[in-house]
Design a protein around this nucleic acid. Structure first.
Lengths: 236, 236
DNA sequence: TCTTGTATACTTGTCGACAAGTATATACAT
DNA sequence: ATGTATATACTTGTCGACAAGTATACAAGA
């Protein structure tokens, strides 16, 4: 707990959003202790607002509350990250399949090209803007669902993707490996535009395997940001 | 609000679970008003416990809270139901693909056969046990994910499946159409055991289309259990 | 020095009371 | 009879205070 700024939050909803954002963007790192008292002092509100936000964050798996001991930002569960990557691969493969099966391209080429272009500019040069790249990356995959008529599903899965984003913010802090990801995006786009569902499926599988590999590398690291071997939620 | 039994709940978690169950199992119907005061009287606890449960139910999209007016059980969003069916189809197709690609059958035949057998006994005869059938149905699909090494993903998607179960409880109240669903399960099982991924994919698509059709029929119904045309959350 | 018991300073859990907004019923004027 | 203003009975929103459990610091005894 530090950097408690003098914000003037009002509603419990805003407190919840603020905490959610700070956890996702690693302002509060995995394992950090969050004190109800300090937070309600920072937000200048009563503990009930903070407790309500805590309750929801706990429900989302972003906070662990140990009664009468303290509350801590959840560690990252790499098995869960792999699950969500599997989920995304499955959903986006189905979306691409639906796009190819049911509709004509429409403005899909322009949309995908725009997202890819934005990824390149955001990740290029020394003044690379990683958050901007991540947004463009999300947009690329979002376009696929939207054009499959499943934009609302993308919103529905937001809660799961939160965990993915937090891990991504922790994992990808340089632009070193981004060009390879962009190249994979271009391959996927080409397969979709050529209406080659089988090829797109293979490329999506490979794309998410690239990320799963990164997650498996984390597995071996010995820092305090990840749960170790199924012992999730066993803080002594 | 009625049938308030004299339970002796204690923790807020139990209250939340109880409300969740009663909403899912339609003891509280879509649109029903839930009063904080009446509930905390029934549970013999303070309003804070109920409010905390309300906050989480709201977050899950099962309750709509209108400040200073009242709280109501969410109506069923059929677009969301279709999204979740699309999600399940995508995930289970990917799971079947993984099963066929990566592992040998193992005890998969026995497990699937057991689940199907349970579906038949639960839905047969005049004393049919629908909840038991639903559990066996869930198990069938759960086995596919488990054998693909994604049991934890199944748990992760529980929150989305809650909405599906609530709709299912409302939609399927007789055993009339269940034999067809069981037959589809048997076809899917056969395709998986014959390691025919393409056929399994087609059959899964058809299976979920059967359910999506039921959802589209609901769309035309003129009762108060469903949101009408994207106007979700517009209660005057 | 080591062990043990106790006091203390934390943490989260729960409660009652009041504030504020909304809808309805009622009395009044037209 | 009808439209309007007011009073009342609800609803959810917010707060301060206290209860209860945990870990730590510290002092007393072996």
């Amino acid at each position: 707990m530090n950097r408690l700024q003098e914000t003037t939050m009002i509603t419990g909803e805003e407190i919840y959003r603020d905490l959610l954002k700070k956890i996702t963007e690693l302002e509060y790192m995995p394992g950090d202790a969050l004190s109800e008292n300090e937070l309600c002092a920072a937000y200048k509100c009563s503990r009930h607002m903070v407790r309500d936000a805590f309750s929801r964050l706990k429900e989302k798996g972003l906070l662990e509350v140990y009664p009468h001991r303290g509350s801590y930002v959840s560690l990252i569960d790499l098995k869960q990250i792999e699950d969500i990557l599997f989920l995304r691969e499955a959903v986006e493969t189905a979306a691409v399949s639906a796009i190819i099966r049911e509709t004509d391209p429409g403005d899909l080429p322009e949309l995908l090209a725009g997202a890819i272009e934005e990824q390149k500019t955001a990740s290029a040069g020394a003044e690379a803007d990683l958050p901007a790249y991540f947004r463009a990356d999300d947009r690329f995959h979002g376009i696929l669902l939207e054009k499959a008529g499943r934009a609302s599903l993308y919103r529905l899965l937001e809660d799961e993707y939160i965990h993915l984003r937090r891990w991504r913010n922790l994992e990808i802090r340089t632009t070193r490996r981004i060009p390879a990801l962009i190249q994979e995006h271009e391959s996927i786009r080409d397969a979709v535009l050529h209406r080659d569902a089988a090829e797109a499926s293979v490329l999506l599988h490979r794309h998410f395997d690239t990320l799963k590999f990164a997650a498996s590398v984390d597995e071996g690291r010995d820092n305090s940001y990840f749960y170790k071997n199924q012992t999730e939620g066993e803080r002594k």
